[in-house]
Each structure stands twice: as C-alpha cells, then as structure tokens.
Computed example of a mutant assay.
Amino acid sequence: MDFKITEYKRSTVLTTSGRVDSYTAPELEEALNQLIEKGQYNIIIDMQDVSFVSSAGWWALIRVQKEVKKNNRGELILVNMDERIHESMDLVGIAPHFTVYDNLIDAVGSV
C-alpha cells in the first residue's frame, strides 16, 4: 500500500488507494501512528482511490481515532469516500465516530 503525505499548517493529509483489508490495515495503521509520533494529531485521510474497507480496516481507523482524540489533541477525518464505503460505515455503526467530508478543501479548512 502506497501513501502520500501532504503537510499543511494545521493538519496532515494521508492519501492512499486500493483496499484496506486485513492484509493492508496494519500498514495503514502504522503509517498513521508514525504521524502521531511526530506530533501530528489532525489527520485527514483522502480515500478517493480506496475501493474497499473491511472490518479490520475500520478497527484500525477506530484505534487511531481514539489515539488522536485522547486529551482533545485532534481528530482523524475521512474525505472523498465512495458511497459504498460510506454505507458500510453506517452498517457497522461507526459513522458517529468520524467526521466525513466530500472534498479535501472543506476537510483541510475545518481543522
């Protein structure tokens, strides 16, 4: 899984593509945890080219969300999600735990 990191003044955008499943979720979680270790707590994941997120992927994102929200330090924001992926979020009941934007400009401007 490839990642592109773009740093802005108040947030960091991680762009990835493909499937986030039991094979790739640990890799994504590790990349996000490396950002946290660098002191970056407002993280935006651009999911425009993500085609699928499994339960393992959602659990990885939930663990990262808990870490960045600890002590009100920041938030993990999801942007450019495919409608089917957004529906799977609702289906597993985790939608209330994430802020979701339709475009990157709104997401970056929200932090």
Score class of each variant (00 low, 15 high):
R19C: 13
R19Q: 13
V20M: 11
D21F: 09
D21R: 11
D21Q: 09
D21S: 07
D21Y: 12
S22M: 11
S22P: 00
Y23G: 13
Y23K: 14
A25H: 07
A25C: 02
A25D: 02
A25W: 03
A25G: 06
P26G: 04
P26Q: 06
P26T: 01
P26E: 03
P26F: 05
P26N: 02
L28W: 05
L28S: 04
E29D: 05
E29V: 03
E30G: 02
A31C: 04
L32I: 03
N33Y: 13
Q34L: 11
Q34M: 07
Q34H: 08
Q34V: 07
L35A: 00
L35I: 01
L35M: 09
I36N: 07
I36S: 06
I36A: 05
E37M: 11
E37T: 11
E37F: 11
K38C: 02
K38H: 05
K38S: 10
Q40L: 12
Q40Y: 06
Y41V: 13
Y41T: 09
Y41W: 12
Y41D: 10
N42E: 09
N42P: 03
N42C: 03
N42D: 07
N42I: 00
I43C: 08
I43S: 08
I43N: 10
I43Y: 07
I43E: 09
I44D: 00
I44W: 02
I45Y: 02
I45H: 03
I45A: 12
I45G: 06
D46G: 10
D46I: 09
D46K: 12
M47D: 09
M47F: 14
M47R: 07
Q48G: 12
D49G: 00
D49K: 15
D49Y: 14
V50W: 02
V50S: 02
V50N: 02
S51R: 14
F52N: 08
F52D: 08
F52M: 14
F52R: 10
F52T: 05
V53P: 00
V53K: 01
V53W: 01
V53N: 03
S54I: 10
S54H: 06
S55V: 14
A56M: 05
G57H: 06
G57W: 09
G57I: 09
W58G: 10
W59Q: 09
A60N: 11
A60H: 04
A60I: 08
L61W: 08
I62M: 14
I62D: 05
I62L: 15
R63T: 00
R63W: 01
R63V: 00
V64N: 07
K66W: 00
K66F: 03
E67C: 00
E67W: 00
V68G: 12
K69N: 14
K69C: 07
K69Y: 01
N71E: 15
N71W: 11
N71H: 14
N71S: 15
N71L: 14
N72A: 15
R73E: 04
R73T: 08
G74R: 05
G74D: 05
G74S: 11
E75G: 04
E75R: 15
I77P: 02
L78E: 07
L78Y: 06
V79F: 12
V79S: 13
V79H: 10
V79M: 05
N80P: 07
M81F: 08
